[in-house]
């Protein structure tokens, strides 16, 4: 509970959770109806994204992966431009070249996004090197999954960042799944943090479904990186509740495990805490939900009205 009182604007965090959920649900609905391409949603992982991103400073740089909608929205990305990108439209953040899986928004410090699993881990030390050598204060936050931690690039990245004293905060969203393989079937250790410790990097683990705990843990880890100019690793334990990529019937998922995690829904946890603390009345909750829904409805309409890029743009931006 002590973490809760440290959150400057708990309602703002809550609203971001709602926004991410509504955004992802709009994609799910749209893809079922064939209006929006399917994608990897972050449903179930909203607290990890919101808690971590809100603990970063404006001058920190972010690298992320295919399951990035939460990171982008929490950082302030416009859901309309994100949806336009998902739909391959001209007003998307990447002019329709990216689609959903690799949206970067340089103006928000989301500098590189890659869907090559482990790609962000390969790039993070270099981004941090550029920060350090040019005397910039911001640290580098690198978001990745438990699956990415199985790639060689994870291990190479941690070793180099530790060796060269690079200010990288490695943030693992351990959502228990690596596409259609459970992490139990793919990792020699229970936790990614165990591996980080092997490289002499300070590690922390946190309940990724408790937005206030994530906020606190990320603040601690980020200030450690900021103060020491050395890497740290934060592992957030969470769960991917909607499957890998829409549509996904999750026939391969253990029903009891899924049910247990659905019972720990990050939005419900946050709402209950706010209500218990007297910070959220039912009417205010409904108002927030309505505001978020209308924002997403506007975003969907904006994206759908955006034109497709002209065919001439096919070869634009290949070379500098």
């Amino acid at each position: 509970m002590n973490t809760f009182s440290n959150a400057v604007e708990p309602l703002r965090l809550y609203e971001q959770l709602l926004l991410i959920r509504a955004y992802e649900n709009a994609i799910v609905r749209g893809s079922t109806e064939g209006r929006i391409p399917g994608t990897c949603t972050s449903v179930g992982q909203e607290a990890a994204a919101v808690g971590a991103i809100n603990a970063l400073s404006a001058d920190d740089l972010i690298l992320t992966n295919h399951r990035s909608a939460g990171h982008l929205l929490a950082r302030g990305a416009d859901p309309g431009r994100m949806l336009a990108e998902v739909m391959g439209r001209r007003d998307g953040y990447c002019m329709g070249k990216s689609g959903s899986l690799h949206i970067s928004v340089k103006e928000l410090g989301v500098v590189l996004t890659t869907t090559i699993v482990g790609g962000e881990l390969s790039l993070a030390p270099g981004v941090a090197l550029a920060q350090t050598m040019q005397g910039r204060p911001g640290i580098v936050a690198c978001f990745f999954g438990d699956g990415a931690a199985c790639e060689g690039s994870f291990h190479e990245s941690l070793n180099l960042a530790a060796l060269w004293n690079l200010p990288v905060l490695y943030i693992c969203e351990n959502n228990q799944w690596q596409a259609f393989v459970h992490r139990r079937e793919a990792m020699s250790r229970e936790r990614v943090a165990d591996w980080g410790a092997g490289y002499g990097i300070p590690v922390r683990t946190v309940d990724g479904n408790d937005v206030f705990a994530v906020l606190e843990a990320t603040r601690e880890a980020a200030s450690q990186v900021r103060d020491t100019r050395r890497p740290a690793l934060l592992e957030m334990t969470t769960y991917r509740t909607r499957g890998h990529f829409e549509p996904d019937d999750q026939g391969y998922v253990d029903k009891a495990e899924l049910a247990a995690w659905l019972a720990r829904d990050p939005i419900a946890i946050c709402r209950d805490r706010l209500i218990a603390a007297g910070r959220l009345a039912p009417a205010a909750d409904a108002e927030l939900a309505a505001r978020v829904d209308s924002r997403i409805a506007t975003a969907v309409a904006f994206a759908a009205a955006s034109p497709f890029p002209a065919v001439e743009e096919l070869t634009l931006d290949v070379y500098a």
């Binding site: 439209r89 329709g96 070249k97 689609g99 899986l101 497709f308 890029p309 743009e313 096919l314």
Partner: peptide
Amino acid sequence: GPDAPVPSSFPLEQAT
């Protein structure tokens, strides 16, 4: 195909 990464946007992808 052109000397370009394949874009996600449907009409551009088809154009490759």
